[in-house]
Design a protein around this nucleic acid. Structure first.
Length: 471
RNA sequence: GGCGCCUUCGUCUAGGGGACCAGGACGCCGGCUUCUCAAGCCGGUAACACGGGUUCGAAUCCCGUAGGCGCUACCA
């Protein structure tokens, strides 16, 4: 039997990092076992559909490299299939028509809750004669509900948590087909997973309490169960579930902030799972070789953005200059509308690569290479520099370097240091002054390397410009 | 409220009865290096939720308590 996993997001908003998390395990597990990975769009809730959301899902999965072997399949295009199947259940006496109004349901739920009972459907329409019900269904609005056994319990095995059991009494008669003719998630997911021959169902643990309904459905249809694995949900530092208020949760946002897809995946893989031997930087391919559900822990991990940042920086540093330049170039163009030629990129990247954790920080740190800088007197007079001393120093530097033929970092540094010695200055004071003059900031890539990349003309222009400002 | 899941350093985790006065990583703190900032290197800080069992022996097994989280829709 061939392994098949699936990721089944609903297009109700921007793709969530939790979806990517599950998709990563789906993808890797399928690959490891030579199986298939299916993408299914669960668009059965017409009210919550968000335009463009589906495209974003495909976009995100592609960016991450989690490519699907089948799909995307849209549930909204399979309505007749669900309808046909649910009717089969009605015929078998495992499901029934229900004509209760939303108002009545609300009221009954309220009553049950007051009495301390589970607020499930009271089963009023369960007693209806099937012939009568069928007739009413021709002209009245209706839903179809699953007939859940009154007694006994439903048990299933979870690959991560072991056996989980529920008393049937606490399971309500779940709606399977909504009055608008669309299936609920519960019906659609079971029918599709079976028809599409999905062998392993991976999803968030928030689905655990729905699983007995699904198990009952499989049994009602007479179908074999797939394997279930409920992954821990990702949490915020305060243990609440991942939310926008605490930072990015959308994969697109991570991309825009300049996270590398391989870093995000590596980070995600480490949530609830650990690489044998404790390695923490590993590739997707290595992950595929080692994924193993028995190593997935069942407690909900906190999505620690600090660690993600460290990991992203780690990945940035490990990229070759060429590759990083390419990525920075694409990033700048896509998100900042800045176009830099590869020569400039390859010159600046080595100077900033160990200083940035996200691609977005590149512009901040290296912007002076391609943007003009503006100084003020106050900004230039760092380290207790007086206007007079600053003029003296900058003037000397400009004089010293104006005729320099060999504009190379090593030469510039050697000569500047000699100048410092002759005048009995402090090297760090002069360097800081020059740094602000050349880069416009007190924090920058190494001074002389930066000047070399910037070029003689621009560097001198900035030193002179600064000289004029402090004077 | 009911039902379910979970509980090792601040965080991600290793650990599956003796190899653990609990290991690694992020963070944090200190040092080295140093033209700023980083990076790098070295060192340090810090945890088995609690209470009962079982056992010669428990972080590891069982029960209970507490806490956290989830579900409780014609949403997924």
């Amino acid at each position: 039997m061939q392994v098949k996993t699936r990721v089944a997001p609903s297009p109700t908003g921007a793709p969530h990092v939790g979806t990517a998390y599950i998709a990563l395990f789906d993808f890797a597990f399928a690959r490891k076992h030579g199986g298939k990975f299916l993408l299914r769009i669960e668009d059965t809730d017409q009210k919550r559909l968000v335009k463009g959301a589906e495209e974003q899902i495909l976009d995100v999965l592609t960016w991450l490299g989690l490519t699907w072997d089948e799909g995307p399949v849209r549930q909204s295009e399979r309505l007749s299939i669900y309808k046909e199947h649910v009717e089969r259940l009605v015929k078998k006496g495992r499901a029934y028509y229900c004509f209760c109004s939303p108002a009545r349901l609300e009221e009954s739920r309220h009553r049950a809750q007051k009495k301390g009972l589970p607020p499930r459907y009271d089963g009023l329409c369960r007693q209806l004669d099937s012939v009568v019900a069928e007739k009413r269904a021709k002209k009245e609005k209706f839903v179809i509900r699953l007939k859940v056994p009154e007694n006994g319990e439903t048990v299933f095995k979870d690959l991560i948590r072991g056996e989980i059991r529920f008393e049937n009494q606490v399971i309500g008669d779940q709606v399977l087909l909504k009055s608008d003719g669309y299936p609920t998630y519960h019906l659609a997911v079971v029918v599709d997973d079976h028809l599409m021959e999905v062998t392993h169902v991976f999803r968030g643990e928030d689905w655990i309490s729905s699983t007995p309904k699904h198990v009952l459905l499989y049994e009602s249809f007479g179908w074999p169960l797939p394997q279930f694995a409920h992954f821990p949900v990702l949490r915020e530092t305060n243990r609440s579930k991942l939310s926008k208020r605490h930072g990015s949760v959308g994969v697109l946002e991570f991309r825009e902030e300049g996270y590398l897809p391989e870093a995000l995946l590596n980070f995600l893989a480490l949530l609830g799972w650990s690489y044998p031997g404790g390695k923490d930087i590993f590739s997707l391919d290595e992950f595929i070789k080692e994924v193993d559900l028995s190593r997935v822990s069942s407690s909900a991990p906190i999505f620690d953005r600090e660690k993600l940042n460290w990991m992203n920086g780690e990945y940035i540093r490990r990229l070759s200059v060429r590759e990083l330049s390419r990525r920075v170039g694409e990033y700048l163009q896509a998100y900042r509308g800045i176009r830099l030629d590869s020569k400039l990129l390859e010159g600046t990247v080595p100077l900033v690569r160990e200083r940035i954790k996200k691609l977005a920080e590149f512009e901040d740190l290296a912007g002076f290479f391609f943007n003009d800088v503006a100084w003020t007197r106050d900004k230039l007079l760092v380290r207790g520099e007086s206007s007079r001393s600053a003029v003296e120093k900058l003037g000397a530097v400009v004089g010293l370097l104006s005729d320099e033929k060999k504009w190379e970092a090593e030469v510039l540094e050697r000569k500047t240091r000699a100048l410092v010695k002759r005048n009995d200055w402090k090297a760090s004071d002069l360097f800081m002054l020059m740094r602000v003059a050349v880069t416009g900031r007190t924090i920058s890539p190494p001074l002389f390397e930066s000047m070399e990349v910037l070029g003689k003309e621009k560097s001198l222009a900035r030193l002179s410009g600064a000289l004029a400002v402090v004077g």
